[in-house]
Design a protein around this nucleic acid. Structure first.
Length: 488
RNA sequence: GGCGCGUUCGUCUAGAGGCCUAGGACACCGCCCUUUCAAGGCGGAGAUCGCGGGUUCGAAUCCCGCACGCGCUACCA
C-alpha cells in the first residue's frame, strides 16, 4: 500500500486570505481530491511581528466559502497536530540541534549592521549578495559559550559545490549552481525558526508528499532540498504554481487590485463563480471547457495541465461567470439571495422585515440582469421609495421633447386610471400601457423611457409593466402625476 | 547586478513536427429578438505563435542565441 497523497496549504496569519492564496488552496484541494489524498491546513506564524488578530478565522472562512475543506488542521484537528507553528517550537529546536550535531548548522553572531554592510559591498562589487560564512570558523564549544551571553542565530551550512536540481512537476528540472547559495538562517535570535526550518520539520512530521506552492518559492528550492538531504529525509515532490498578476503584469498586490478573497463574497460574487474563475487561472481541462463545478474540478484536476506562465486576474471574466451562475440558480435559491441582499443593502429607513411577497415577485425580474448581488438593491429600491430625479431626465432619451413627455404622461395617467382597482394585475396594466401606442401613434419604445423615469427615477431598470403593477395603482398614479407636474 | 522562471488573439487558454488557412471562452463590433436595461440567438473582427538563427521535406511545437517581463536575492513568509 503506497502512502496517500498529502499536501498542505500553509498561509501566514498576516491578514485576510489573498485570492492568490485561495487559488493555491483550491488547486491543492482539487489535487488531493482527485488522488484520494488528504489536505492539511497549517498556520505559519513564525514571524510574530507580522501576526494579525483574527487572520486564522478569516482564512478558514475564506476557504470554506469555496467549499474547500481540509482533513487536518485548525478547527478540525488531526493526528499530526498542533497545526500552528508557534506551538511546535520544541520540534524545530530538536531538529536544529540535530543539524548542529551533524555539522550542518552553526551559530552566527554577526550583527544586522555587519550584514547590511556586507550586502552593500557585495552589490558594489557586482557579487551575489549573501552571507559570507564568517562565523563558520568559530569552534562549536566557543560558539555555545558565547551564545549564553550574546544574541545569535543558527545558520544552515550549505554545500557550495556542484548543483542542486529540483524536479518540478509543472516546469521540469530546475537546476541551481550551489556556489551561488549562502548559509541562511534557520533559527532566529528570538528562538523562532525561519520558514525554511519550520517547513522542513512540519512537512516531514505531517508526512507531506507533495508541496504545491506559488512560484515565488521556486528560488528557495535548493535550500529546502539540501535541508532534507542533511537530515537524510526523503524530499517531497514539488510543484510551483504560476503567480497571479495584475494588469501591469506584477504579482497581485493590495495597491493595484482587490485581493482579499472574502471581499469578493461581500461584493456579491457567488462561490461557484469564483471557483470556476480561479480554476481556469493557470489550468485548463481541454480546448473548449469553460465552465466547471467544484465536484468536477476535484475529479479531473491534474498538475500536468497546469501551465507555467503567470495569469492575469481579470475581473471582467469573473463578472461574466458570476452572471452565468446567477442565471443558473433555481428560482427559490435566487429568491433567497435577493431577500438577503435587499435586507442588507436597502436604506435603513425602509421598515424590516421586507414584504416577502414583493421580494418573491421582483426576484425573477432581477435574475437575468444582475452580474453581482450588490446590484440588486439599486434596481429594486424604487419600489420602496421614489428616488428624486431632475425633470430633464424625463426627456433625456427622447431628445428633450417636453411636449411628447407631457402627452405620454397624460395618456399614461388616463390609461392607468382606466384599470379598475379590483382588476389591478400585471396583464391589464400592460394592456393599458400598450394602448398608449395608439393614443400617441408611436411605437412604445419611442416614449417608454419617460415612463421608466416617472416610475423608477431612471430611464432603465427592471421591466416597466411589472414594476407599475407591483407599485400599486395609487402609487403608480401619484408618480405619473408628479412627473407631469415636473414638466410644467 | 546575480540567479531562476516565463513569452500563442486585448485577457484566460487549446496546441506536445504535418489534423493549424492556429481552436474555445471573456471582452469588443454588427444584426435579430425586444417595454428600458439585460439575457438569448446569429454573425464578425481579432494572434505572421516575443525576435534572430538553426535542425527537418515540413516547426507555435525540437536546438542555440538575443530581447523583454516577472520572481527571488531578509533574523518575511
Amino acid at each position: 500500500m503506497s502512502a496517500p497523497v498529502r499536501t498542505r496549504f500553509a498561509p501566514s496569519p498576516t491578514g485576510d486570505l489573498h485570492v492568490g492564496g485561495l487559488r493555491t488552496a483550491l488547486f491543492q484541494w482539487a489535487f488531493v481530491k482527485a488522488n484520494g489524498g488528504e489536505l492539511v491546513l497549517r498556520i505559519e506564524d513564525t514571524d510574530q511581528s507580522r501576526y494579525v488578530e483574527g487572520s486564522v478565522e478569516s482564512i478558514c472562512e475564506g476557504l470554506r466559502w469555496l467549499g474547500i475543506e481540509w482533513d487536518e488542521g485548525p478547527e478540525v484537528g488531526g493526528p499530526h497536530g498542533p497545526y500552528v507553528q508557534s506551538e511546535r517550537l520544541e520540534k524545530y529546536h530538536a531538529v536544529a540541534a540535530e543539524l548542529q550535531a551533524r555539522g550542518r548548522a552553526y551559530r552566527c553572531f554577526c550583527t544586522a549592521e555587519r550584514l547590511a554592510q556586507l550586502r552593500k559591498d557585495q552589490q558594489k562589487d557586482g557579487l551575489a549578495p549573501g552571507y559570507d560564512g564568517r562565523c563558520r570558523q568559530i569552534p562549536p564549544e566557543e560558539a555555545e559559550e558565547r551564545a549564553r551571553t550574546e544574541p545569535s542565530v543558527l545558520r544552515f551550512r550549505m554545500d557550495r559545490t556542484g548543483v542542486t536540481t529540483l524536479p518540478d512537476l509543472i516546469r521540469g528540472d530546475v537546476t541551481f549552481q550551489n556556489s551561488l547559495q549562502d548559509d541562511f538562517v534557520i533559527l532566529k535570535s528570538d528562538g523562532f525558526p525561519t520558514y525554511h526550518l519550520a517547513m522542513l520539520v512540519d512537512d516531514h512530521d505531517m508526512e507531506i508528499t507533495h508541496v504545491v506552492r506559488a512560484e515565488e518559492w521556486l528560488a528557495s528550492g535548493p535550500k529546502h532540498l539540501q535541508l532534507y538531504e542533511a537530515m537524510d529525509w526523503p524530499a517531497p515532490h514539488f510543484a510551483h504554481l504560476p503567480v497571479l498578476v495584475d494588469s501591469k503584469g506584477r504579482k497581485l498586490s493590495k495597491r493595484e487590485a482587490d485581493v482579499a478573497a472574502l471581499d469578493y463574497r461581500d461584493r456579491g460574487y457567488l462561490p461557484e463563480a469564483m471557483l470556476n474563475f480561479l480554476a481556469f487561472l493557470g489550468w485548463s481541462l481541454d480546448d473548449h471547457t469553460t465552465h466547471i463545478t467544484a465536484g468536477e474540478f476535484a475529479r479531473v484536476f491534474t498538475l500536468d495541465r497546469v501551465v507555467p506562465n503567470p495569469a492575469f486576474f481579470d475581473v471582467e471574466r469573473l463578472d461574466a461567470l458570476n452572471g452565468h451562475y446567477i442565471r443558473a440558480l433555481a428560482p427559490e435559491a435566487w429568491r433567497e439571495h435577493v431577500a438577503g441582499w435587499l435586507d442588507r443593502d436597502l436604506p435603513a429607513n425602509i421598515p424590516r422585515p421586507l414584504d416577502a411577497d414583493l421580494v418573491t415577485a421582483v426576484a425573477p425580474l432581477l435574475q437575468e440582469r444582475v452580474t453581482r448581488l450588490d446590484e440588486v438593491a439599486g434596481l429594486v429600491r424604487f419600489l420602496f421609495a421614489l428616488p428624486d430625479y431632475p425633470a430633464e431626465l424625463l426627456t433625456e432619451r427622447i431628445g428633450g421633447d417636453t411636449g411628447l413627455a407631457a402627452r405620454t404622461l397624460e395618456a399614461a395617467i388616463a390609461a392607468v386610471e382606466g384599470v379598475a382597482p379590483e382588476a389591478w394585475a400585471p396583464e391589464p396594466v400592460e394592456a393599458a400601457l400598450r394602448s398608449l401606442q395608439d393614443a400617441l401613434d408611436l411605437k412604445l419604445r419611442k416614449f417608454v423611457s419617460v415612463l421608466y423615469v416617472a416610475i423608477m427615477g431612471a430611464p432603465r431598470g427592471i421591466p416597466l409593466f411589472d414594476s407599475v403593477a407591483l407599485l400599486g395603482r395609487d402609487e403608480a398614479l401619484d408618480r405619473l402625476r408628479a412627473a407631469r407636474a415636473k414638466l410644467a
